[in-house]
């Protein structure tokens, strides 16, 4: 019976690729979320942006 052998170097490279891609995808989700907040959240006519616009007004005064 063949024994399961220790991790081959290939597996290390594959792992690095999988983890790397995972990080990239999570970062992309974060970027899209952040962009949404940044762009939608600064529109004074929008529910999300109204508090921000008020804060800006206050700061200006």
């Amino acid at each position: 019976m063949t024994q399961i052998r220790a991790t081959h170097e290939i597996h290390g490279r594959r792992l690095s690729r999988n983890i790397g891609l995972g990080i990239v995808l999570v970062a992309f989700v974060g970027i899209v979320y952040g962009l949404t907040i940044a762009k939608v959240g600064t529109d004074p006519n929008d529910d999300l942006g109204a508090p921000w616009a008020q804060a800006q007004d206050k700061a200006a005064k």
Partner: peptide, 13 residues
Amino acid sequence: DQDRDAGFGDYFA
């Protein structure tokens, strides 16, 4: 083919 499997750093390069 498996031997050629690239790591993340190779794509970054």
